[in-house]
Amino acid sequence: MTVSLSGLQVAKEITEQFPDTVVEATDQAVLVKSKSIFEIAQYLKNSPELSFDYLNFVTAVDYLDCFELVYQLTSLKHNHSLILKTRCFSRERPTVPSVVSVWRGADYQEREIFDLMGIIFDGHPNLKRIVLWDGFEGHPLRKDYL
């Protein structure tokens, strides 16, 4: 069975590489700053002892004061998993670096988040609406939609 790594332990390793990027770490998840998510994603994928080579999903939560992005990562090599989170606080133009160049599977999911939540993924190769059509106004999964 896949072992879920302790967020506290992974947070320690991330802090060694990238100081001042971890906002909060619990046993379940690591919350990092959004502007360094790309470097952390690269590190988590390429580090030999972590080696998170598979992205289960990306999703987003609207907490009204911020958007939270949740990345569920798995290492097929070591058979362990981790939940990585990040927050962005702008409502007009929330921007997060894209992780498509790290995990290709994030492509459509980031487009869906952009479509329904309006979060802009910086560096995404094809950021346009995927579920709704071109010209649709607003982002319907936001809490303040309608």
Binding site: K128, W133, D134, G135, F136
Partner: peptide, 18 residues
């Protein structure tokens, strides 16, 4: 601007739906 498909197709589809 987008690598997978033409923007015009999307715009046409959106216009048709509207």
């Amino acid at each position: 601007k987008y690598i997978y498909s033409d923007v015009e197709l999307d715009q046409h589809e959106g216009q048709e739906i509207a």
